[in-house]
Simulated scan of single mutants.
Amino acid sequence: MGRKIKNFLDEEGLEGYVFLQTCNRAEAYFLSDTLSSSVPEKAIERSGEDALSHLLKVASGADSLIVGETEILHQLREAYNEFNGSHGFSSDLEEIFDWALKFGKKVRRETDISSGKTSVVSIGLDHIQEILENLDKKKAVVIGAGKIGAKAARYLKDTGVQGVLVANRTYENAVELAEEINGESYRFSKLPELIRHVEIIVCATGAPHYTLSKDKIPVLEKNKVLLDLSVPRNVHPEVIEMDKIEYISYEELTEKARENLVDRSGEVKKVKRMIRDEVEAFLSEDPLEDLYKKAGRIRRKQLEKAMKELKKRDEGEVLRDFSRSLTDKVLSAVKHEMKSREENWEND
Rank of each mutant, 00 (worst) to 15 (best):
5 I>Y: 05
6 K>H: 05
6 K>Q: 10
7 N>H: 13
9 L>G: 08
10 D>K: 12
13 G>P: 02
14 L>G: 03
16 G>V: 03
17 Y>T: 04
17 Y>D: 02
23 C>Q: 11
27 E>K: 09
28 A>G: 10
30 F>I: 12
30 F>V: 15
31 L>W: 01
32 S>A: 14
33 D>I: 05
34 T>R: 12
36 S>Q: 11
37 S>P: 02
37 S>Q: 10
37 S>R: 15
38 S>L: 10
39 V>P: 00
41 E>M: 09
44 I>C: 12
50 D>V: 15
53 S>V: 09
65 L>E: 07
66 I>F: 05
67 V>G: 03
69 E>G: 03
72 I>Y: 01
75 Q>M: 04
80 Y>K: 08
83 F>E: 14
88 G>L: 02
89 F>Y: 13
90 S>I: 06
99 W>Q: 06
99 W>M: 08
100 A>N: 03
103 F>Y: 06
107 V>H: 00
109 R>S: 12
117 K>N: 14
118 T>K: 07
120 V>T: 08
121 V>C: 10
123 I>A: 08
124 G>M: 07
125 L>T: 02
130 E>F: 04
134 N>Y: 06
134 N>P: 04
136 D>V: 03
139 K>T: 01
139 K>V: 00
147 K>R: 13
148 I>M: 14
155 Y>R: 11
161 V>P: 01
164 V>T: 01
166 V>C: 00
167 A>V: 05
168 N>L: 04
174 A>Y: 00
177 L>D: 00
179 E>W: 10
181 I>Y: 02
186 Y>P: 03
191 L>A: 03
193 E>D: 14
193 E>S: 12
194 L>T: 05
197 H>E: 15
199 E>G: 03
203 C>I: 06
205 T>G: 01
205 T>K: 00
213 S>K: 15
214 K>F: 09
216 K>S: 11
217 I>N: 06
218 P>A: 13
221 E>T: 14
228 D>P: 02
235 V>F: 04
238 E>M: 06
238 E>I: 06
238 E>A: 09
240 I>Q: 07
241 E>N: 15
242 M>Y: 05
243 D>N: 14
243 D>M: 12
244 K>S: 02
245 I>W: 07
247 Y>S: 02
248 I>Q: 05
248 I>M: 05
249 S>D: 11
254 T>S: 07
254 T>D: 08
254 T>H: 04
256 K>T: 11
258 R>Q: 14
260 N>I: 00
261 L>K: 13
269 K>L: 07
269 K>E: 11
272 K>F: 09
276 R>K: 07
279 V>L: 04
281 A>N: 12
284 S>E: 13
286 D>F: 07
287 P>K: 13
289 E>T: 14
289 E>V: 13
291 L>F: 09
296 G>K: 11
297 R>W: 02
298 I>W: 00
299 R>A: 15
305 K>H: 07
305 K>M: 07
313 R>A: 08
315 E>Q: 06
316 G>A: 12
318 V>N: 04
319 L>W: 15
322 F>P: 01
328 D>Y: 09
335 K>G: 06
340 S>P: 04
340 S>R: 15
340 S>E: 15
343 E>A: 09
344 N>D: 14
346 E>Q: 08
348 D>M: 06
